[in-house]
């Protein structure tokens, strides 16, 4: 505890001998921060609603989006042999046709809303790479409204 440090061994509040550790630690922290920042740039997707997406029109084409909104249950078509799921998301009169080439999530028909992630193509169809199904929440739904709320993991992701 008690060794005495001469003033010339100090740089600011730190001892000279400890400087290399500060620099080394700083470099590693910086590297992690850069890694985080850099990864954000490549992987982020804007999270908007169906109407907001429609408002963007042609600007929306080709970028990554994450869209939330309710599913029009009438529109759901699942072709199991081609593994193609098609449905429309609706919100305030806005419609977004979605196509998803994978197994239909078990809970889709029970969902209050879904979150799809993917890109929109030239014809205005949303190519979903993943679907996240949200189920009715027990505090929002009336008790007799049906489905109980899963208190844990519900939908299938990716």
């Amino acid at each position: 505890m008690g060794e005495i440090v001469k003033p010339q061994d100090r740089i600011g509040p730190f001892r000279k001998s400890q400087l290399k550790f500060l620099v080394g630690g700083g470099i590693i922290i910086l590297a992690i921060l850069l890694l985080i920042a850099n990864s954000f740039r490549g992987t982020g997707a804007y999270y908007i609603t169906v109407s907001e997406l429609n408002a963007k029109g042609a600007d929306a084409i080709g970028r990554s989006w994450r869209i939330s909104g309710p599913v029009d249950k009438e529109s759901v078509q699942y072709d199991a042999s081609a593994l193609t799921l098609k449905f429309d998301m609706t919100e305030d009169g806005h419609r977004l046709p979605v196509v998803y080439h994978d197994v239909m999530p078990d809970l889709l028909m029970k969902s209050t809303s879904v979150i799809v992630e993917g890109r929109i193509d030239q014809s205005g169809v949303f190519e979903a790479s993943s679907i996240l199904v949200k189920c009715p929440s027990k505090y929002e739904s009336q008790l007799d409204a049906g489905q109980e709320v899963p208190p844990d993991h519900t939908g299938s992701a990716s």
């Binding site: 890694l35 985080i36 490549g42 992987t43 982020g44 804007y46 999270y47 908007i48 992630e117 993943s130």
Partner: peptide, 28 residues
């Protein structure tokens, strides 16, 4: 917390998924 923070700062909500985490956490 990125969606929350990005919405507060830029007004638009940006989300990241598994690709982000894999890219960051892989090397770590």
């Amino acid at each position: 917390v990125y969606p929350v923070v990005s919405e507060l700062v830029t007004g638009s909500k940006i989300v990241v998924g598994p690709p982000f985490f894999n890219r960051v956490e892989g090397p770590i």
